[in-house]
Design a protein around this nucleic acid. Structure first.
Length: 274
DNA sequence: GCGACAG
DNA sequence: ATCTTGTCGC
């Protein structure tokens, strides 16, 4: 009975060693010329990816993983792949990648096999990159495994020792849009510098959540609503107009409209002092 | 001992 | 991650 905790501790110890090992392959600076220093922000950027995983309400073992690729700077979805997956690892803070990253790698491999010409030049990941206790969050993990540049974008701050007092990590709280009061937290994933990661993320923000991640989130949720037919008792004939675009706003963008500006921006200011 | 803790 | 209600605005 008492062995379950012990087993999980052993697994986490294994995971920790693997993070430390994989981190040796991490590259935290720009490796490609994004064409920044010209008049156009990212003149060499054409394809940008986004990944996310959505869960149905009752079931923690199944989820819908989604990869989208958008063109840039139009930010239109040019590729979409959805996949129902079976989760085996639990969610343990600091070890999110061990629960989710495998499915994301699978989606990227499938894209590389089916339409390699659509492989994104950089992928925005829902979760942290180097803003992590060991500097190796899921964005780094995915980047190292796929060798594709990645950026970590978190919606809430992952508390790491030393971040509040001193942002030597040079991670930043970013205000995506003027009307979005809650910041997002951008950190380096792989093969990209922080400055580039931040401006690139900012260039993808039509709402609080950068469009690639936002689209992956919207589409994976929509997929669950349509295909994950759990025995939701009565109302089986509810039709919703599925708006794939501008009418689906970010929750926080809506809620943030008009109130709490001072308080939430306080958080932003606290953390921006890098 | 209790709380905090990306998704 | 997911749930919840109402509210505002186009």
């Amino acid at each position: 009975m008492a062995s379950r905790d012990t087993v999980e501790n052993d697994i986490v110890e294994t995971w920790k060693r693997e993070q430390i090992e994989l981190k040796k392959k991490l590259v935290s600076e720009d490796c490609v010329n994004w064409g920044v220093s010209t008049e156009e922000p990212f003149s060499n950027l054409n394809l940008i990816g986004g990944v996310d995983i959505s869960f149905p309400k009752g079931d923690a073992d199944h989820a819908c993983a989604c990869l989208v690729v958008l063109n840039f700077p139009e930010l239109e979805v040019v590729y979409e792949d959805l996949s129902m997956v079976h989760l085996t690892s639990p969610y343990v803070p600091e070890y999110l990648a061990f629960r989710e990253v495998g499915f994301l790698v699978d989606l990227i491999s499938r894209l590389g096999k089916d339409k390699p010409e659509l492989l994104p030049q950089v992928i925005l990941v829902d979760g942290n990159g180097m803003l992590h206790p060991r500097g190796f969050g899921i964005a780094c993990h995915l980047g190292v495994l796929t060798d594709i540049p990645t950026v970590g974008v978190a919606k809430t701050l992952f508390h790491v020792d030393g971040i509040e007092r001193d942002s030597y990590h040079a991670d930043q709280a970013l205000r995506s849009t003027q009307q979005a009061c809650n910041p997002i937290y951008v950190s380096v994933g792989h093969k990209i510098g922080l400055e580039t990661a931040v401006s690139l993320t900012h260039a993808c923000c039509q709402y609080r959540i950068p469009e690639p991640i936002r689209q992956a989130d919207i589409r994976s949720r929509e997929y669950l609503r349509q295909h994950y037919t759990k025995e939701l008792n009565n109302c089986s004939c509810k039709m919703q107009s599925s708006d794939t675009d501008a009418s689906t706003e970010d929750k926080d963008d809506q809620r943030n409209r008009g109130d709490l500006v001072d308080n939430t921006c306080q958080t932003f200011n606290d953390l921006k002092l890098s």
